[in-house]
């Protein structure tokens, strides 16, 4: 049994008097890909934001490698790659400038591989074009280029394939398989069907939603 990287215990989250999930348990080990399922508005993004520490509106415990998240937060952040709903790509900067700043923020990204990563996501020749002149899919690809540069252990990806074409998705799937074979893990949400070759663990947020409204004091 591989060591659990990220463990969530009895997570509870409430928003606008609606309980999104209650008693949610999750243990992500090395070499696993987890897909978070649920309908629109069921709390997938909220769960991912809680897991990576962006949102603090929850109750419950988070552990990184068995230690309480509060104590090892810095360690956790240095091993995390998060690509959110908003890709974190500045429209007024070029692909290269965007990636260079990301590398400065996250030492787990290898800046020497930036050029190669942009080639791999099909943005060769677009390095010097401001992102606002690119298509939605191309903008997304700037963010996804980080996957090729990352040395992070855990990838948390929120709808990474929005606006990405089929060939692009297949390439990223292959990359994720490579990542877990090297001992990494992935937690992601997507509404697209993933290739059946990927060993997938799933968790459905709706199963943890309480049906009746609960009122907190």
């Amino acid at each position: 049994m591989a060591q659990a990287l990220l463990t969530a215990q009895s997570l509870f989250c409430e928003r606008d008097d609606r309980v999104l999930f209650d008693q949610l348990e999750l243990a992500v080990s090395e070499g696993e890909i987890w897909q978070v399922e649920g309908r629109n508005g069921s709390g997938k993004t909220t769960l991912l934001r809680i897991l990576c520490g962006l949102s603090s509106h929850f109750e419950g415990e988070l552990y990184w490698r068995g230690e309480s998240m509060d104590e090892v937060r810095e360690q956790f952040l240095s091993e995390l790659l998060y690509i959110g709903h908003q890709a974190g790509v500045s429209a007024m900067l070029t692909a290269e400038e965007n990636l260079h700043w990301q590398c400065a923020l996250h030492p787990s990204l290898d800046v020497s591989r930036a050029q190669q990563a942009l080639e791999r996501v099909g943005l060769k020749g677009f390095e010097d074009v401001p992102a606002h002149q690119l298509s939605a899919g191309q903008k997304r690809r700037i963010a996804l280029a980080k996957l090729y540069m990352s040395r992070a252990k855990l990838w948390i990806l929120d709808e990474p394939f929005t606006a990405i074409d089929k060939i692009g998705v297949a390439a990223k799937e292959a990359l994720m398989v490579e990542h877990i074979q090297a001992g990494g893990s992935v937690i992601m949400t997507t509404h697209q069907d993933l290739s059946s070759q990927i060993p997938l663990h799933t968790i459905n947020v709706e199963h943890f939603a309480s049906t009746q409204r609960e009122w907190s004091e």
Partner: peptide, 21 residues
């Protein structure tokens, strides 16, 4: 603009000190 395009999330998830940025 950093808030709107998600750069701020990336900033807060950096292991580096935020006050510096």
């Amino acid at each position: 603009s950093d808030y709107e395009d998600g750069s701020l999330e990336q900033l807060l998830l950096s292991p580096q000190p935020v006050f510096l940025v």
